[in-house]
């Protein structure tokens, strides 16, 4: 159960990576650090205004959207002519800067973060269920459904899917690819902020917190990078694996399990569980 809960947070992180990847074909190395910064901002609101947690969540989401918008407009957009590799290094530089800036603003200390859900076990018959796990799973699923609806039924969602499929064709159809870039950065950051607020009570709030995003990468690859349902399933699989592997496997290899699984899946099914390898074009 707690495996599924962590898994659903990984799934959110994977989704936020996939959203940007689909629109711009680049990996955002700074995703984890953006998530960390927005959670810190939400926490600051919590401390300063004694606001309820829901307000903190909203503040975090808004902060994330703002940060993403600013970064996209001031930095990423200027690298639009650059290669994917250059953009990769830019987001890497961003991740270093954001982590360091967080340390300067909030110190590198760890802080407790309140949870929406209590940690006392609820007894349901003989089964003990932690409300935190249920809550996290529920909240994540709700957000995923909302995302699904957005992609399916809104103009923006259709535009984003079109750009993901074929950028040139999308442009010819009158879609502003630049706006889709901005929108996907903002959307991804917002999803990341929710993931941040959900995972902060578990891993605690610190400048190092962004490193959990590596699990988002793994989840996204497991599911087949670029596929949204794949990202969700990949996240769940990874969470459960991490949860169960230490129970059944010898200590010497348990920590490598997620990576071994990832390598195996990549080798056996290069497109991931759900992805398809696009046919090569000349």
């Amino acid at each position: 159960m707690s495996g599924l809960a962590t898994g659903s947070i990984y799934a959110l992180m994977a989704l936020s990576l996939v959203i940007i990847y689909n629109a711009t074909r680049t990996l955002n190395f700074a995703q984890g650090e953006m998530l960390m910064i927005s959670t810190f901002v939400g926490w600051t609101a919590l401390q300063l205004l004694r606001a309820p947690l829901l307000v903190a969540l909203l503040v975090a989401v808004v902060a994330a959207a703002l940060l993403a918008w600013v970064l996209e407009r001031t930095i990423i957009r200027h690298a639009i002519s650059a290669t994917h590799f250059d953009v990769l290094i830019i987001t890497l530089g961003l991740s270093l800067m954001l982590r360091s800036a967080a340390g300067l603003l909030w110190t590198h200390d760890e802080f407790p973060f309140p949870s929406f859900f209590g940690s006392r076990p609820l007894g349901v018959g003989a089964v003990r269920v932690a409300p935190a796990s249920l809550g996290i799973i529920g909240a994540s699923l709700a957000l995923m459904l909302a995302l699904g609806a957005l992609f399916r039924w809104t103009r923006l969602g259709r535009a984003m899917r079109a750009v993901a499929q074929n950028q040139r064709a999308a442009r010819l159809m009158g879609i502003s690819v630049e706006q889709v870039y901005s929108a996907s950065w903002i959307l991804a950051a917002a999803v990341g902020a929710v993931a941040g607020v959900l995972i902060a009570p578990v891993v605690f709030l610190s400048s190092q917190m962004g490193l959990v995003a590596i699990n988002g990468f793994t989840a996204a690859v497991l599911g087949g990078f670029g596929s949204m349902p794949g990202a969700v399933v990949g996240g769940m699989v990874l969470g459960v694996l991490e949860n169960l592997a230490p129970l059944y496997l010898p200590a010497s290899i348990k920590h490598s399990v997620p990576f071994l699984v990832m390598i195996t899946i990549l080798i056996v099914r290069p497109g991931g569980l759900f992805g398809r390898v696009a046919p090569r074009k000349v």
Binding site: I89, L92, G93, L96, R99, S100, G103, L104
Partner: peptide, 12 residues
């Protein structure tokens, strides 16, 4: 503490 900040800025 400013090392990663400066390094990242130079990269970008």
């Amino acid at each position: 503490s400013y090392r990663p900040l400066v390094f990242g800025a130079i990269l970008i």
